[in-house]
Amino acid sequence: MDARALAALAANPGCRRRALLDGAGVDKGALARALGATVAFGQSQFAHQRGNSFEARVKADRGEELLRLLHERLRDGSAPPEPGAVATPDLTAAGPQGRTARTSLALREATAAGQWALLDHPMVSLDVAGSPAFLEPDAVVVHPDGSWTVIEIKSFPMVDGSADPAKVGAAARQSAVYALALERVAALIGDPPQAGKARVRHDVLLVCPKDFSNLPTAELVDVRKQLAVTRRQLTRLTRIEEIAAALPEGTTFDLRLTDDGRTATRPVEELTAAVEAVDAAYAPECLSTCELAAHCRARSRAAGAVESLGRGVRGELGGLTTVEAVLAAALGEAAGTRAEPTGDPAVDALRRAAALRAEALASPGAVTCR
Rank of each mutant, 00 (worst) to 15 (best):
M1R: 03
L6Y: 04
L6T: 06
A7Q: 04
A8P: 00
N12F: 00
N12L: 05
A19E: 07
A24V: 03
A24D: 13
G25A: 14
R33V: 09
G42R: 07
A47Q: 14
H48D: 13
G51R: 08
F54D: 09
E55F: 02
R57A: 15
R57W: 02
A60D: 13
R62F: 06
G63N: 08
E65Y: 00
R68C: 10
L74R: 15
G77L: 11
A85K: 08
A87G: 02
T88F: 01
D90H: 06
L91S: 06
T92E: 14
A93F: 01
G95S: 10
P96T: 10
R102M: 05
A106E: 05
L107W: 06
L107E: 08
T111I: 13
T111Y: 00
D120W: 00
V124H: 01
V128D: 03
P132L: 07
F134H: 10
P137F: 02
V141D: 01
D145A: 11
V150W: 06
I151E: 00
I151Q: 00
K154V: 02
M158A: 07
G161V: 09
G161T: 09
D164L: 13
D164G: 06
P165H: 13
K167R: 15
A170L: 15
Q174Y: 09
S175N: 07
S175P: 05
A176C: 11
Y178T: 04
L180F: 05
L182N: 02
R184S: 13
A187N: 07
P192M: 09
K197H: 08
K197C: 04
V200Q: 07
H202Q: 12
V204T: 12
V207I: 11
P209D: 08
D211I: 06
S213E: 07
P216T: 13
A218N: 12
E219N: 13
V223K: 08
K225M: 05
K225E: 14
L227V: 12
A228E: 14
I240P: 08
E242P: 00
L247R: 05
G250M: 07
G250Q: 04
G250A: 07
L255G: 13
R262N: 06
P267G: 12
P267M: 07
P267V: 13
E270N: 03
L271E: 05
T272G: 12
A274T: 09
A274L: 03
V278W: 04
D279T: 10
A280Y: 11
A283Y: 11
E291H: 12
L292F: 04
A294P: 00
H295K: 02
R297P: 00
A298D: 10
A298F: 00
R301Q: 14
G304T: 04
G310V: 11
G310H: 08
G312H: 09
R314Q: 15
G319V: 10
A329L: 11
E333C: 13
A335V: 15
A339N: 05
E340V: 13
T342Y: 04
P345L: 02
P345M: 01
D348A: 01
R352N: 02
R352Y: 00
A355R: 11
L356Y: 08
E359V: 00
A362K: 13
A366V: 13
A366S: 10
V367K: 04
C369K: 04
R370S: 11
